[in-house]
Structures are given as C-alpha cells and as structure tokens.
C-alpha cells in the first residue's frame, strides 16, 4: 500500500539539506521496523518520494512524503514507531493510506503557506506592497536570471504583529521560494534583507483548492 506521511522539521534539524533528510528517513523506516517495498534491480532502494524540498535553515510544520510499504501494517503503529525513531528532530504528524489513483505528493503540491517571524518590529506595515500593479523580480532559473512578475503567484500576504503570513505558488511549475518574496518586500520598503533577521516556517503544503496534502 501507499502511505502519506506528514511530518514537521523542527528547529534542531533545520540545517539539514534535502539529501540528508531523504537518507535520514530511509534509515528511520528500518529503525522503526516498518516493512518497506523495494525497487527491483541490482541496487534495490525504498520506494518513497518527498513532496517538495525545503531550504536549509527553514523549519516546517507541514512536510510530506509518500512511501510504498508492505500491506497490512497498522498505521497507528507506523506513526508511533517512526516518531520514536526520529528522536525529536522530526515529529510524525499523521500517517494515512493513499487511495488508489490519488496523485503523489510531488505532483499534488500547488501552494505553500509560510510564516516569517521578524526579530524586531522592522515591518510596521506592508505599505501597499500588494497594491502594486505588478511585482517584478529577478528569478534564477536553469537558463539564467529571468525577470518575472510574482504578484499573480502570491495568494496571501498579511502582517500580524511581527509575523508575516503568506501563501505562494509551489510545486514543479512556478515555485516561489520564501526568500524571493521577502527580499522583494524588504527592498520595496527600502530595507536590506538578510536571512538571519527572520525565522521562516513552512506551515503546510497545499493542493488544489488550497487543501492540505494530508486531506486530499
């Protein structure tokens, strides 16, 4: 059966890169005694896929991975054992069986919701940032730097105290990294952006109609 695991990436492991996390879960499944399905061939490996890589230094309360496991295992047990095997770096938030035909996490991702906690009260208001006609940004792509308008890719951008909440486009098309938005916003406000002035958390990954991947 296919299962979808929702997990958090806590502060203590926020500096791990995507490859480190993949390797970590591969071993966590074995420590947790989860019976996995393996690919065929000379170099068999576990069948699992992550929804969307997360940048180094960013925590999350809504990461997803899909895995193929041997049928008949108890989902509650998997959740508990896997959570124990993660020793606090990641919390396993839910484990659900994926019905046949549901697209995998990677292709289901359409949006990501983030919060950015600023250290000080450096953003008194957004000063009409979202009222601009367009928000032109230089985005690095495989073929070089391209100027794009990211305004249509921002679905929410609100300031609440020192915390900015925003939902942006994510997934294989039009993925907007949180830094891209924050850098643009700061420059609009005439401020210099640096990563250490803000704690970024990915709140969740969302599919069509802004439904969290765990509820699809």
């Amino acid at each position: 059966m296919k299962i979808r695991i929702k997990f958090s990436k806590n502060d203590s492991v926020k500096f791990l890169g995507h490859l480190d996390i993949m390797r970590f879960f591969q071993r966590a499944f074995v420590r947790a005694g989860v019976k996995m399905l393996y690919s065929e061939g000379f170099n068999p490996h576990q069948k699992m896929s992550f929804a969307q890589p997360l940048g180094v230094g960013i925590t999350s309360t809504g990461e997803y991975l899909d895995a193929d496991v041997v049928d008949g295992q108890d989902l509650t047990e998997i959740k508990e054992n896997l959570d124990k095997a993660c020793q606090g770096g990641f919390d396993i938030l839910s484990v659900k069986e994926l019905p046949l035909g549901v697209p995998n996490a990677m292709s289901a991702v359409k949006y990501a919701s983030y919060s950015a906690d600023f250290n000080d009260n450096i953003l008194p208001d957004l000063n009409g940032f979202m009222a601009q006609e367009c928000i032109l940004t230089n985005k690095k792509t495989k073929s070089g730097v391209k100027e794009i308008d990211i305004k249509p890719l921002i679905y929410k951008c609100e300031l609440n105290g020192n915390t900015l909440h925003f939902i942006v486009s994510a997934g294989s098309e039009n993925n907007i990294k949180p830094d891209l938005l924050l850098e643009n916003l700061m420059s609009f406000l005439g401020l210099q952006y640096s990563r250490d002035m803000v704690k970024i958390t990915r709140r969740d990954l969302l599919g069509d109609n802004f439904i969290p991947l765990s509820d699809l």
Binding site: N10, D11, S12, F15, G17, D20, G57, A85
Partner: peptide
C-alpha cells in the same frame, strides 16, 4: 525540546554543511 547551538543562525547559514556543528544525531 529545542537544542541550543553554540553558533548563531547567521553564522550557521553562512558556512558549508552547518549540520556538521549542530549535533543531535541519532
């Protein structure tokens, strides 16, 4: 429980492979 780091985030974000220095491994 959050672990404390001897190095602040600014430093950790500026060096190669910061997880070399943060401990907490299995």
């Amino acid at each position: 429980m959050d672990r404390k780091n001897a190095l602040n985030d600014k430093i950790l974000l500026s060096v190669e492979k910061p997880a070399r220095y943060t401990g907490g491994e299995i």
